[in-house]
């Protein structure tokens, strides 16, 4: 299998505090990878470092056979890395449609209309509320909008940071169904979750992150059966 993303020895700091202590991780083209871990383990920092909005202090990030460790965030989006950030981060006062248009900021104008129809097909509720300010949507709808906005960039690698956070179980199911559908359509997905059970259940492979280090790595199914994982993250 060819590796779309390979990270080696990656470190990142907030001031003097080390958030990532040498991460080694790969994502193969077309797979759904889950990263689980407790609060403060460094999951969000890792995704932000991959997107380039948090600087790496050491190690390297390679994507599609090129070194992007020092690339600008906008260049990484152009290369096909899109992120759905933690907490959704929609442009609240702007209309749903404007949020999606901005998601396609790096794409030619002609492509954007077609991509937007695809997003509306995936999340029809967004089409109904296209003219309303994003800030007036419910939490679940905002999450759909955040995913839709990332899809507008036509990503080859989609980074999802805690898409189930703060959502009712039914909505979590809907979001996860959409993620599986995206994977089937060929998008490579890197899913970061505190909801380890749901994430590992749909993942091909999974990593467990603790205090800035990868401590376990296996297939999703095997991790679900792993005693350490069951005890620490599944509450069994």
């Amino acid at each position: 299998m060819t590796m779309l993303l390979s990270i080696s020895g990656l470190t990142s700091h907030y001031g003097r505090i080390q958030a990532l202590a040498g991460i080694d991780l790969t994502v193969a083209e077309g797979e759904l990878l889950a990263l689980v871990g407790a609060n403060g383990a460094g999951k969000t920092t890792l995704l932000r470092t991959i997107s380039g909005v948090q600087p790496a202090t050491g190690g390297s990030v390679r994507y599609a056979d090129r070194d992007i460790t020092r690339s600008a965030p906008s260049d990484r989006v152009r290369l096909g890395i899109a992120q759905v950030p933690e907490g959704r981060q929609v442009f609240g006062p702007l209309a749903v449609e404007d949020n999606l248009m901005l998601g396609g900021y790096t794409r030619p104008k002609a492509e954007r209309a077609a991509e937007m129809e695809k997003v509306y097909a995936l999340f029809p509720v967004l089409a109904q509320r296209r003219r309303e300010p994003a800030g007036t949507l419910s939490g679940g709808q905002q999450q759909m909008l955040a995913i839709g906005r990332a899809l507008m960039a036509k990503p080859r690698l989609l980074l999802l940071d805690e898409p189930s956070m703060g959502l009712a179980p039914l909505l979590v199911e809907e979001i996860f169904r959409a993620i599986v559908a995206l994977k089937k359509a060929g998008t490579t997905i890197f899913l970061v979750e505190q909801n380890a059970r749901a994430a590992l259940a749909i993942a091909d492979r999974g990593y467990v992150l603790e205090t800035g280090r990868i401590v376990l790595h296996d297939t999703g199914a095997a991790l679900l059966e792993n005693d350490k994982v069951r005890e620490a993250y599944l509450g069994v």
């Binding site: 997107s51 909005v53 965030p73 989006v77 152009r78 899109a82 992120q83 006062p93 702007l94 906005r149």
Partner: peptide, 16 residues
């Protein structure tokens, strides 16, 4: 405008 509302999200959609 998007940058003024949410700088992080603006960077993540590829706005310089």
């Amino acid at each position: 405008l998007a940058t003024s509302h949410n700088r992080l999200a603006a960077q993540l959609v590829g706005i310089d």
